[in-house]
Simulated assay, not measured.
Amino acid sequence: MKRHSGMGKRVKITGSGKILRQQTGLRHRLEVKSSHETRSLSGTVEVAKADVKRVKKMLGR
Rank of each mutant, 00 (worst) to 15 (best):
M1A: 10
M1H: 13
M1C: 06
M1Y: 13
M1I: 06
R3G: 02
R3V: 10
R3T: 06
R3I: 06
H4P: 05
H4N: 14
H4V: 03
S5W: 07
S5V: 14
S5D: 07
S5Y: 08
G6M: 01
G6I: 00
G6C: 03
M7G: 09
G8I: 03
K9W: 07
R10Y: 04
R10H: 14
R10M: 15
V11H: 11
V11G: 01
V11C: 08
K12R: 14
K12F: 05
K12D: 10
K12W: 04
I13M: 13
I13G: 04
T14Y: 09
T14M: 06
G15M: 00
G15A: 12
G15Q: 14
S16I: 08
G17A: 05
G17Q: 05
G17P: 02
G17M: 07
K18I: 02
K18V: 04
I19T: 07
I19D: 11
L20D: 03
L20T: 03
L20Q: 04
L20P: 02
L20W: 05
R21Y: 00
R21A: 11
Q22K: 13
Q22F: 08
Q22D: 09
Q22E: 13
Q23P: 00
Q23A: 11
Q23F: 07
Q23M: 09
T24L: 14
T24P: 09
T24M: 14
T24D: 13
G25Q: 00
L26Y: 04
L26M: 11
L26A: 11
L26I: 12
L26S: 12
R27L: 08
R27S: 10
R27K: 11
H28E: 01
R29D: 05
R29G: 01
L30R: 08
L30T: 03
L30D: 02
E31Y: 05
E31N: 10
V32W: 05
V32L: 09
K33T: 01
K33I: 01
S34K: 15
S34I: 10
S35P: 10
H36V: 11
E37Q: 06
R39S: 14
S40K: 07
S40G: 10
L41G: 04
L41D: 06
S42V: 11
S42Y: 11
S42W: 06
S42K: 15
G43A: 09
G43D: 04
T44P: 00
T44V: 09
T44A: 12
V45N: 01
E46N: 10
E46Y: 07
V47S: 07
V47P: 03
A48S: 11
K49L: 08
K49F: 10
K49R: 15
A50R: 10
A50M: 05
V52Q: 13
K53P: 00
K53C: 00
R54M: 02
R54K: 08
R54C: 02
R54I: 02
V55Y: 12
K56G: 06
K56Q: 13
K56D: 05
K56W: 08
K57L: 11
K57P: 04
M58L: 14
M58D: 03
M58A: 14
L59F: 07
L59G: 02
L59I: 04
G60C: 06
G60H: 09
R61T: 06
R61M: 13
R61C: 04
R61V: 11
R61Q: 12
